[in-house]
Design a protein around this nucleic acid. Structure first.
Length: 217
DNA sequence: GTCCAGGGTTCGT
DNA sequence: ACGAACCATGGA
């Protein structure tokens, strides 16, 4: 079977789908909120929850911290797991405010920022890396189930690597590219975009973007 | 009715 | 170190 390099897969995806313009948010803080709310949840439902926060003028770390957990959970209801996510949002906001918000955090070194995020209850590696990349513009590759599945089927990776190993492997595969933040930003967004692509024809949808003649978007 | 979505924690083995 | 149950809504 043919093996595609990590870089080649990106080129094909970009060629097929074009720039994805992620993350859909008006501010860095909104990215952070969205990153927590989208955990194992369809984005359309996250948008509803964020709209609730906006309509209540509560898309603000200090306001969320002052909001009773019960009311916060009601606003988050459309995004699912609302009781858990209400607590997680509070934890993230406490972290955000206590460290001086974006103005201070944006000056932190990436490794320190990542460790700090991972110490927040409710933020795992994927969410932390999504925040680093999409809220803080750091060159960190986000590993999710789609990434693993796609690159395994294309023979670009073995597939059973740990999160950190796979991340290093992919970042190494793109080491010669420049503008890493923009590249990783688009790559992850393209993988998510491609996961939604269903192609009835063979070969299967995970590989058809690499074939000529598939015009489906 | 079933499956799954832009995961993480907790608790068994 | 790895697996499974748990969290919960809404669209396909």
């Amino acid at each position: 079977m043919a093996h595609y390099s990590i870089a080649a897969v990106y080129d094909r995806l970009y060629q097929h789908y074009g720039a994805q313009q992620w993350w859909p948010a008006d501010s860095a803080f909104e990215v952070i909120v969205g990153a927590v709310l989208t955990q194992n949840t369809a984005w359309v439902n996250v948008e509803r929850a964020i709209d609730n926060l906006k309509h209540a003028k509560a898309l603000d770390a200090r306001i969320i911290l002052q909001t009773p957990i019960k009311r916060l959970a009601q606003w988050l209801k459309p995004s699912g797991y609302f009781n858990i996510k209400a607590k997680r949002l509070k934890h993230v906001c406490r972290w955000y405010v206590s460290h001086g918000a974006y103005a201070t955090l944006r000056q932190w070194e990436t490794g320190k920022l990542r460790e700090s995020l991972l110490a927040v209850h409710g933020i795992g590696k994927e969410t932390a890396d999504a925040i680093l990349l999409y809220a803080f513009d750091r060159p960190v590759f986000v590993i999710d189930a789609y990434t693993r599945r796609l690159l395994r089927r294309l023979g670009s990776i073995h597939g059973d690597e740990s999160y950190n190993d796979l991340q290093r492997s992919i970042e190494r595969g793109l080491a010669r590219r420049r503008d890493k933040s923009r590249l990783f930003n688009e790559y992850h967004a393209l993988i998510v975009r491609h996961a939604k692509h269903s192609c009835a024809a063979k070969p299967r949808c995970e590989t058809c973007v690499l074939q000529r003649g598939c015009a489906k978007k």
